[in-house]
Design a protein around this nucleic acid. Structure first.
Length: 558
DNA sequence: TCTCCGACTTGTAGGAATCTCA
DNA sequence: TGAGATTCCTACAAGTCGGAGA
């Protein structure tokens, strides 16, 4: 599928390098910091780190012990010896003037005149034009993230042991540039130099640096609309379609393996069943103490499942309760085949809650096995496959040919939602959720009042007509009848909207749409039912899925 | 076989931009 | 016309997976 057969990703690559975070601007003298009630002027490096904390004062993070502890430890490293000896207790630090200053700043920004805002916009556009594009082979391509991450306090998700640590400022000396030999090399800012300039066309990134919290590498890569990303995306869905062709065979095989004499094979087969049926992630091992304690399928522990031989009229029920990626809770209670249940009981024997459920299995073993079953098959392909096939099935099931366009779009959202639920894509309910539901309810109530008034009027009109039997009263009845009908429709629409919103309260549709659903299914559906593709994909999404919009006809089958 | 690292995909939060309605 | 609601978009964290090296 790659355009080059030797594993190289490009022949020519030219870009302008990254945009660095603006330098620190010291606070004006009237913005004070207090320690133990006393005003204290901080050195510039200490002040900068203090402002990171001050900006977050309203955030829950700053109330967490680990965050405070990590922050204070790293902050002290930036202090002068004098500051270090004075500032020994974070609880005695008063950042409130700083906090108010930044709030005022952002307020002022909002209040800027149209002209000032326009000027900023133009400057941003200029930077985008200069740094936001590169030439890869014969195309000008949009770069994804050409700005280097500014310094700040690390915000890990969930119970992250490193939250609050200082993310240091990235300098040109930290930066590795990747471009082709025959290109015009990006220049480092005056008086600085790059860490390295290399010409590696086996990778797709343009710029990289090592981040100081986990020691991992960060990259600048191309935008999803680029050829290189689009082709990879297409390839991903083609792999999932190949799985469709052999999934029955694979399922039969793992069901058979539930009976294996070998423990490792039974574990592998049960894990694969979960990955297939429940769309669980693979679950790599993680270094303890370096990250939040989260798991996927292969790293599930005894404490994450409960077995019920019989509960609520159902037999062989497994209850899952664990924190997955981004510390999102996965909770599910499902009946499984008797064999799976018996195997799980076996796996649990003589184990402590913190022991691995699949002690003879890891992602590398599982993926090696999958590779043997199908070329290019890995655990995550099941998620892609099951998501896409579910969308296709649901669309078939839910779309009514006679429905209006809004009703069809509602069906699309419901199909999308089924996938999001399968993949456990949750979101925090929007802060304004209750209020917006209330507003909608008010509208519904008003509509209902309107309806009952209209119905009364219809009744009166009917009575009038019965009494007079003239044409005029007959027409009046018709008019009122139409009015009732119209209001009924409007009411139904509002109610559907309310249901849709309620159902979507804790579900995030974006991730599945962007990463799991073969866009050709959606494009074909749009073409088949005459729905403008803009109703399904916004501008960015259409750019990302341009390849699919070009490619798919109305009869496309995943 | 195990560990570590590099490259790349997937994921949510939150701010910016845009829309909607009084 | 401006505030609040909603949608879009970016930032960047957190996964997956393959391969090198011991």
């Amino acid at each position: 599928m790659d355009i080059y057969t030797d594993g190289s990703k490009w022949r020519f690559l030219e870009h302008k390098g990254p945009v660095f975070a603006p330098p620190y601007e010291p606070l004006p003298d009237n913005v004070r910091f207090f320690y133990d009630g006393k005003n204290m002027k901080l050195s510039a490096p200490a002040e900068e780190v203090a402002t990171f904390f001050a900006k977050m004062l309203d955030h829950e993070y700053t109330t967490k012990d680990i965050f405070r502890k990590n922050f204070f430890k790293d902050w002290r490293k930036e202090m002068t010896p004098e500051e270090k000896s004075k500032l020994t207790d974070l609880n005695k630090c008063n950042f409130s003037e700083m906090n108010e200053y930044f709030k005022a700043q952002s307020e002022a920004k909002k209040q800027m005149s149209k002209e000032e805002k326009q000027k900023i916009k133009e400057e941003n556009e200029r930077v985008l034009q200069e740094y936001g594009y590169c030439i890869m082979d014969n195309h000008k391509e949009r770069i994804g993230n050409f700005r280097i991450e500014p310094p700040g306090l690390f915000r890990g998700r969930g119970d992250h042991p490193k939250m609050g640590m200082l993310k240091r400022r990235i300098r040109p000396e930290d930066i590795i540039i990747n471009c082709s030999k025959d290109s015009k090399q990006p220049k480092p800012p005056p008086g600085t130099r790059w860490k390295e300039v290399r010409h590696d066309n086996k990778v797709t990134w343009l710029v990289s640096w090592t981040e100081n919290i986990q020691g991992s590498i960060k990259y600048i890569m191309l935008n999803p609309s680029s050829r290189i990303k689009g082709e990879k995306d297409w390839q991903k869905y083609e792999t999932a379609r190949r799985l469709k062709k052999c999934v029955d065979r694979i399922r039969a095989q793992y069901r058979d393996d539930w009976k294996s004499k070998e423990m490792r094979i039974r574990q592998r087969a049960v894990a694969l069943y979960f990955i297939d049926k429940l769309a669980l992630r693979a679950g790599n091992e993680k270094e303890e103490g370096e990250t939040a304690d989260t798991v996927g399928c292969c790293s599930l522990r005894v404490e994450h499942i409960k077995l019920y031989p019989k509960i609520d009229e159902q037999e062989y029920v497994v209850e899952f309760d664990f924190l997955g990626k981004d510390s999102i809770r996965y909770y599910n209670k499902i009946p499984v085949e008797k064999r799976v249940f018996k195997n799980l009981q076996l796996f649990l024997e003589n184990k402590q809650p913190e022991d691995d459920l699949f002690d003879r299995l890891n992602t590398s073993i599982l993926n090696k096995h999958l590779q043997e079953l199908m070329d290019g098959l890995t655990a995550k392909v099941f998620r892609t496959y099951n998501a896409s096939i579910t969308l296709q099935q649901q669309l078939k099931e839910l779309t009514c040919p006679d429905d209006s366009i809004p009703a069809k779009i509602l069906s699309y959202n419901r199909a999308n939602r089924a996938v999001a639920i399968l993949c456990n894509h949750q979101r925090a309910p929007p802060k304004t959720f209750e209020k917006s539901m209330q507003n909608l309810q008010t509208k519904i109530d008003e509509k209902q009042k309107q309806l009952s008034t209209a119905r009364k009027q219809l009744k009166t009109a009917k009575a009038d007509h019965k009494a007079s039997h003239d044409d005029k009263s007959k027409k009046a009845v018709e008019v009122k009848r139409k009015a009732v009908q119209r209001i009924e429709e409007q009411l139904m629409k509002l109610q559907v909207q309310a249901t849709d919103r309620e159902e979507n309260k804790q579900i995030a549709l974006g991730t599945s749409k962007l990463n799991y659903l073969d866009p050709r299914i959606s494009v074909a559906w749009c073409k088949k039912w005459g729905i403008p593709v803009e109703k399904i994909y916004n501008k960015t999404q259409r750019e990302k899925f341009a390849w699919a919009i070009d490619m798919a006809e109305d009869d496309y089958e995943f």
